[in-house]
Write a protein that binds this DNA or RNA. Structure first.
Lengths: 103, 103
DNA sequence: CATATTGTTCGATAAATCTAGAACAACTAT
DNA sequence: ATAGTTGTTCTAGATTTATCGAACAATATG
């Protein structure tokens, strides 16, 4: 299957992170990953087309927020919590505490 | 002159804040206000047209990041540091520590 | 008063982003 | 194998955002 690229967090710029988290749909995804550790794309609580979800996951991945590994036909996503929080302390915590909006 | 509206920070949603800080130009503006406390628009280190700057300032204002007061023909802008940090702890600090990119 | 300064608003264009359908590839299961 | 599941890529449309010039309003200055 596809080979997922994950950036070094030291290469991720703050505007890219902010951009990634400026979309309520992606905020919802992060919320879900805070609750469930590892989720396949089709287990995420979003109501968008598959192609759209692929796009959102790519944005989160490129912002260093999520890690994606292949497991058979599915791909499992998790938060890069620790490393991310080291590079951008407090952000994930803010998302965690923010109200869940429609996605 | 214009009457500037400043939202209650409790009414500001996280995606709006993220959106506001997803632009390098606006990050530069926040950087400048971290250094100088209060600055008129024409003192900000940005290389965009006046109309564009007005737009960026409005985005920052609506995200609760800056306060604008009128002083004669100019308007003076400052960060709403304390209250903002109470509502969204750590964000301003992250911006402060982030590298300055081109605007 | 005449001119310059400061910033807004309007209108228009360009660029980026979000969205999704359709075709496709890879794996799973019957 | 045949069909179903999972997710990507391509293409395209729709929405949002960024940008700026020009006209304007309000203040400041000579």
């Amino acid at each position: 299957m596809k080979i997922y690229q994950h950036p070094d967090l030291s290469d991720v710029a703050l505007p890219a992170v902010m951009q990634a988290l400026s979309d309520p749909c992606r905020i919802s995804i992060v919320h879900a990953l805070l609750k469930h550790e590892e989720l396949a794309c089709n287990e995420l609580p979003v109501e968008v087309a598959k192609a759209t979800l692929t796009h959102h996951m790519a944005v989160l991945r490129e912002a260093g927020l999520i890690y994606t590994r292949v497991d058979g036909a599915k791909c499992l996503n998790s938060l890069r919590s620790e490393e991310f929080d080291k590079q951008f302390p407090g952000i994930i915590s803010l998302v965690e505490q923010s109200a869940v909006v429609a996605s």
